[in-house]
Simulated scan of single mutants.
Amino acid sequence: MEYQFIKDPLFGIRVRMSDEHSLIGRWLSDEIGNARLAEVFAWIAKIKQGQDTVVDAGREVRLTLNRDEALFEAHALFFNDDSQLDEYRDDALNFADEGLHAACGFEDFCALLEDFQQFCQGR
């Protein structure tokens, strides 16, 4: 998993990742940032101490964390009301779920967060 941290003067610290993992970067940039990083490390500690799963609903992205992986799912995946989409059916739009879910291994997730923390602290 490749990533790059960027200090943006307008938007703060941003995480750039490959398309496959872009949702993870968005989650870390927009929902966690430096402010909630300690909370995420607490979730990791719970998993390492034997808790099976930690789930965080988030504002736009749900994280499901377990010993094997970190699974990220945009809330848009759980949108069940198609009535609002009916007006667009004639436009032949493709409502793909690309970019709405991503996953990485637990160890890769831990490494990403440690690197992010170091970047936030200016190391």
Rank of each mutant, 00 (worst) to 15 (best):
Q4A: 07
F5Q: 02
F5V: 14
K7Y: 00
G12I: 00
R14H: 05
V15W: 05
E20R: 14
E20P: 06
H21Q: 09
H21M: 02
S22K: 05
L23H: 07
L28S: 05
E31L: 14
I32S: 08
G33A: 05
G33N: 03
G33F: 03
A35L: 09
R36L: 08
R36G: 05
L37G: 11
E39G: 05
W43R: 09
G50T: 10
Q51W: 04
V54M: 09
A57Y: 14
A57S: 07
E60S: 06
D68V: 07
E69N: 07
A70R: 03
F72M: 07
E73T: 01
A76V: 12
A76S: 15
F78T: 05
N80E: 12
N80M: 01
S83N: 00
Q84G: 12
Q84Y: 10
Q84D: 09
R89G: 04
D90R: 15
D90F: 12
D90A: 15
D90L: 05
A92M: 07
A92V: 06
F95E: 12
F95A: 12
F95Y: 15
E98K: 14
L100K: 10
L100P: 00
A103G: 11
A103W: 08
A103C: 02
C104K: 05
G105S: 13
E107Y: 04
E107G: 08
D108F: 01
A111Q: 09
D115T: 02
D115P: 04
